[in-house]
Structures are given as structure tokens and as C-alpha cells.
Amino acid sequence: MANLLDDKIRQQIGEAFKELREPVQILFFGSKEQCEYCDDTLMLVEEVASLSEKLSVQAFDVDDDAEIAANYNVTLTPGLVIAGMDDDGPVDYGVRYAGIPSGHEFSSLIQDLILVSGRDSGLSPQTRDFLAGLKEPVMLQVFVTPT
């Protein structure tokens, strides 16, 4: 398989991945319908995951695995769920990507992998207090572009 990432980038990511602590699984959701970036996204996350034994990828199809996609609230493809991984399987922390994480978002992906791996949000005590008492669902969608 041809590499999407050059040696220098792979080396930098490898360096950053020394911070990985607990296992993380990337759940990939693709579609056989028109999905311009599905193949590239899957290749990208598989390549990233190959750089650390703490990372794994599981690939799903939003139609063939409709129930799983619904469980994770994934409708847009390519879709990624950055989940913790323990003995019972993936643990959903509600971290999602819709669309290919390229450009600036590629570094966000690497940071999210490290964050989920550390099982620590790094947030302030005030924010943690508020979130701990939260009774209603909150959906945050951060719109970005690759450049």
C-alpha cells in the first residue's frame, strides 16, 4: 500500500504517539454510495493507526452496518468515532469527525487520539463541574475547512 504520509511526517507522528497511554480505536464509517473521500480517509486512519500498537481501526458501512452507525449517531460519510478501547470493546467518548481530517484537521486528529488515549480532557475545574451536572444533551459541531 502506498503511503499517504511521508517519512518526515510519520516520524513526527511517531514521536507524538509516545504520549499514547491507553488503547484507542478509530471507528470508520464509509458508504458505497457517492463518497468522494471515504477511501482516502480509511487509508489515512489505517496508516496513522499502523504507527502505534495502541491504535486500531474498525471499518463499517453506514448501510450494511446501519444499526451500529445509528448507535454512534453517524450519518455523514466518511465518519470517524475516536473511541477508547477496553476489554469489553470500544468506549464512546462522543468524539466524531465528519469528512476527511486533512490539512489542519490532521493535527487535530492526532491530538484527539492522544487526548482520548490519556482519558483526560485537560479542562478547567469549572468546566468539569458544569459538565458533571449536565442533564441535557449538548451537540457541538465545529465546522472547519482543510486549509
Binding site: 473521500y37 462522543g94 468524539v95 469527525y97 469528512g99 476527511i100 481530517p101 483526560d120 468546566t127 457541538l140
Partner: peptide
């Protein structure tokens, strides 16, 4: 924040791939 609470879901949306959604929320800049 999503990590801290089961009630929170955080999604990164690539705006140019999902124009319909971006238009729906009147995304002008990122």
C-alpha cells in the same frame, strides 16, 4: 468536553464536503 460528559457529543465537520449542512447553519467562515 465530550470526554467529560456522556451528554456531550463533539463533531468536527469538514464544511466543504457537507455544503448542505454548512448552508443550513449559515457557515460563512471557519
Amino acid at each position: 468536553m465530550a470526554m467529560e460528559s456522556d451528554m456531550v457529543q463533539a463533531e468536527m465537520v469538514e464544511a466543504s464536503e457537507f455544503r448542505e449542512l454548512s448552508n443550513q447553519y449559515h457557515i460563512m467562515g471557519v
